[in-house]
């Protein structure tokens, strides 16, 4: 890789710590855990009692209200965060020090950890809940207590962090600004496309598959898009590859004194 950072004099004076702040990362994990558990408790409280008939007034009150709130709030929060990341970007990204760059890679990794955390709640926990809901109750509309959480809450949440990781990398890390990480694109766009794939899913459930068979080809769009999670391996290798170049510079003094 052609590299500018290695040409620069690194700020290595007394560099033993990188001053990485884990606070926001820990906060995100804790806040998300609380949010997801609250969503599940809401399903527990009002799933069967208010959510069996999409045409009933109580469904409108308890579920469609939630739907109307969560959609703008979650997408709005995402848009705000992405905008913030963009507006606070480093205007001269090539000039950042190796230490700052190394720290940014750690932060990017944290973004991806939180993204992975969201993928778990969506792909496993709430998707499983959706499965068990559909085997139990009759499907009437695209809006069910399981869909209103799974599709319209947990998907925008992981998009918040997936797209966020992309914007973060592009605005803070030279390599990710200089070029577009193919695997990062896969890892973010694949799960993102699950959202438009819902159109196909609901079309299929209306006209093609009127019964619930989970392994039905109708669902395989989600599967293929889920495979894109593997692409984070490529991002990992990009990070590790750059670490090889940055670490010796940042820890140069330590190496010299050893």
């Amino acid at each position: 890789m052609s590299d500018a950072a290695l040409d620069r004099t690194p700020n290595v004076t007394g560099t033993k710590t990188l001053s990485i702040n884990y606070g926001l990362f820990a906060f995100a994990i804790v806040a998300l855990t609380i949010l997801y558990i609250c969503a599940r408790l809401y399903q527990q409280a009002f799933g069967f009692s208010m959510g069996l008939d999409a045409s009933s007034p109580e469904f409108g009150e308890y579920w469609m209200t939630l739907f109307r709130i969560e959609l703008p709030v979650l997408y709005g929060a995402g848009a705000l965060c992405w905008t913030y990341l963009f507006l606070t970007r480093d205007k001269n990204i090539e000039a950042i020090t190796p230490e700052v760059e190394l720290r940014s890679y750690f932060y990017l990794t944290m973004w991806l950890v939180v993204y992975s955390f969201c993928i778990f709640w969506t792909g496993s926990f709430f998707a499983d809940g959706d499965g068990v809901w559909h085997q139990t109750t009759l499907r009437d509309t695209p809006f069910t207590p399981s869909h209103i959480i799974l599709f319209y809450a947990t998907i925008p949440i992981y998009l918040f962090f997936g797209v966020g990781s992309f914007v973060y990398a592009m605005t803070r890390i030279p390599a990710f600004c200089r070029g577009i990480s193919l695997m990062h694109v896969f890892a973010v766009v694949g799960p993102f496309l699950i959202l438009p794939n819902l159109g196909f899913n609901e079309w299929g459930h209306a006209y093609w598959l009127t019964e619930e068979i989970f392994s039905h080809p109708l669902h395989w769009g989600f599967v293929v898009l889920g495979w894109c999670a593997l692409a984070l391996a490529g991002v990992l290798m990009q990070i590790v590859g750059r670490f090889r170049e940055l670490v010796p510079i940042v820890f140069k003094q330590e190496a010299a004194s050893a």
Partner: peptide, 26 residues
Amino acid sequence: FLVVAAVVPLFAGAFHLHVMLTVGDW
């Protein structure tokens, strides 16, 4: 630690989704 913290939930989510929608009921 961070990578392990990403790998576990990422593949818990992606692999479980894959299994639910390919093996599914079996």
